[in-house]
């Protein structure tokens, strides 16, 4: 049963309750962030099975190291940092011969929607497929920067890279993405009517 009262607590309040032994608060915290963490893992790893495993590992790591969390920083940034690094670890541990069953965002479904919604969803799918063509670490940065609307400062914290490194990597990733879009999905470049 979902505890709606607890859902109204802030992240820091939930963390305090978890540290006092209330594990049901951890479930609430997890349910709040699981889609975001899964999205980052999926963007980096590009396979659903691995993304699911990495997300589970992320939350187990979060649970075990909650006492080390410094409330001066945002909980989400700290959690993304764990998700980002866990996913990169998965890439490092991959066997080179493994044939990846790369996620096809086309199966995200566009049925039962209005024309405008369908068009918008198609653009989203094309964007996701374009991001999917970037290397894992760069795709992860793009995901966190645009989709999770993280600032450069938050990206530095999440990736563990230096400020200049983040800027360089992000620039490269955006440039690559622009190249992929202009060659494969040029319609995105003019999707919005901008005066």
């Amino acid at each position: 049963m979902v505890d709606y009262y607890k859902m109204m607590h802030s992240d820091d309040q939930l963390i305090t309750m978890i540290l006092n032994g209330d594990d049901s608060s951890f479930r609430i915290l997890m349910e709040k962030y699981q889609n975001y963490m899964y999205s980052v893992c999926l963007t980096i790893l590009k396979t659903k099975n691995e993304a699911e495993e990495a997300t589970q590992d992320t939350f187990v790591k979060i649970y075990r190291s909650l006492d080390k969390y410094n409330s001066d920083s945002k909980f989400s940034s700290w959690a993304y940092k764990i998700a980002y690094r866990t996913s990169l670890d998965y890439i490092r541990k991959r066997k080179p011969t493994v044939d990846l069953d790369v996620v096809d965002y086309a199966d995200h479904g566009v049925a039962d929607s209005s024309d405008q919604e369908i068009q918008s969803k198609e653009v989203s799918l094309q964007i996701l497929n374009a991001v999917n063509q970037l290397p894992g670490d760069e795709a992860g940065l793009i995901r966190m920067f645009y989709l999770e609307e993280m600032s450069i400062k938050e990206l530095v914290e999440a990736s563990g890279l230096s400020l200049s490194n983040v800027k360089v990597k992000l620039y490269r990733a955006r440039k690559k993405l622009a190249d992929v879009i202009s060659t494969q999905y040029p319609e995105i470049e003019s999707y919005f009517e901008i005066a």
Partner: peptide, 16 residues
């Protein structure tokens, strides 16, 4: 700007 806007509109994937 179009790419930026399109990226910002992409929904979050749903965890299992």
């Amino acid at each position: 700007l179009n790419i930026h806007r399109a990226l910002s509109q992409v929904p979050t994937s749903t965890a299992p």
